[in-house]
Simulated assay, not measured.
Amino acid sequence: MTDSLELKLRNFLNLYWLRPENGLITPFKSKAFENLKFESPSLDLSCGDGLFMAIHLGAIFENDFDYFKSTKAKDFSHDKMVDIFDDFNENYNVEFVKRPKIKIDYGSDWKQALLDKAEKLDLYKKLVLHDNNQLPLPFEDNYFKTIYSNSVYWVKQPEKLVSDIYRITSPGGMCSLEVLTPHRYEILYQLEKVLSPTAISILDRKRRENTPGLKELSEWKEIMQNAGFEIVEIKSVYPHKILMDIWNIGLRPISHLLIQMSDSLESEKRQKIKQEWVEIFYELFKPLLTIGESYSLENAPYLSFLLKK
């Protein structure tokens, strides 16, 4: 298992190299639903650009390819928030060393630019543009045998979304839903006692404001059960608070500048720097793959629910 996590750490760091904190946490996100078998018809609800799911399913990208190949980094500033990654240019092209082991039948997201990127993966048989705040979801009753979603907490009324996910799940079908709790941003609340409001704003990037669906474990359990699901398993996705503290700060405050600097490099120079960069963070983060647990389910910031209809 450690060998598998180390491989995923390297692959995710190669993908997210300018945001290495994302490279650190994504192996744990992948591990949390490693036992979910994608049986057809299958759905990745809020698939984004699909890159995370591709690596989860065994893909390895060429070293030259990464998450930062098409961004709006030059348009970002801390007083003018934009989604850096809501961008797609005609030169965006995904290069594989190894393709994902399977294909997923449907991927959906609310941003067309992300779906355009996902289409380049050839991972999803069909892509659907849809905002999950708009219910019902555009799928038939009792249709999907397998559903994965890591974003039910982004909507204003997650309980209604979970109920509709139940509607589109076939009898006996399995769902893996990842959800946030109020413990997600604990380090930001701690830092508010010592940092200025401006500094906190730089670190926060309006994340707390834009995640309305934070709920405690007991509330999420009630939502899943009220929808009709049987709870098969609940996991804390991240074992230790230090992982969340690193992620909550990381290189996020300067990522738009790092992206612009890397964009200004010639391809050969960029690749050389990236390779050394990834190796450094791999050595820094590798010991954290076996770090002990500091979270219980009750105070975990991020939970993975395995559900059955």
Rank of each mutant, 00 (worst) to 15 (best):
P136M: 09
S77V: 00
P27A: 10
K309T: 02
I200C: 11
L51M: 15
K72T: 00
K126D: 14
S30I: 13
T146M: 05
S4L: 13
Q225K: 13
L15Y: 15
M244T: 06
P212N: 02
K286V: 06
G58L: 08
N63H: 04
L135K: 13
K206T: 01
G107A: 08
F52V: 12
K269C: 08
V162D: 14
Y282Q: 05
K117E: 12
E6P: 04
L307G: 08
A227M: 10
P212M: 05
I25Q: 05
V82L: 06
I102T: 08
F88K: 05
K206R: 13
T169F: 09
A59L: 03
D79E: 13
I168Q: 12
Y16D: 11
V194K: 08
I55P: 14
P239V: 12
D141G: 11
D87N: 13
F61D: 09
I249P: 05
P212H: 01
R208L: 04
K74C: 07
D83Y: 09
K274V: 10
E276F: 01
G58C: 10
S70G: 06
R207D: 02
Y67N: 15
H78D: 12
K69C: 05
K103V: 06
R167P: 08
P136Y: 07
G292Q: 15
R19V: 06
N210S: 01
N142M: 04
T71W: 14
I165M: 10
P27Q: 11
E6N: 09
P158A: 02
K160A: 15
Y185K: 00
D131A: 07
L188T: 01
L188C: 02
V97G: 01
E283V: 00
T290D: 14
Y185Q: 04
F144S: 03
L57T: 03
N89K: 03
S236Q: 09
F285R: 01
R19A: 14
S4Y: 07
H130L: 09
P41D: 03
Y67A: 12
N91V: 00
S294Q: 05
K117P: 13
C175Y: 03
T2M: 05
V82I: 15
L258A: 11
A59Y: 04
N14D: 13
F76W: 13
G213N: 12
D105R: 03
L114Q: 14
M261C: 04
F85I: 10
Q225D: 06
D75K: 09
A300I: 03
R19D: 14
L257W: 05
I234K: 13
T26P: 01
F285I: 01
D164C: 08
F85C: 02
L57K: 03
N248K: 01
A32E: 08
Y238C: 07
A59C: 04
D263A: 06
E90R: 08
L303D: 11
L123V: 06
S304F: 03
K309V: 02
D64G: 09
E216C: 07
K8D: 15
L7S: 13
E39R: 07
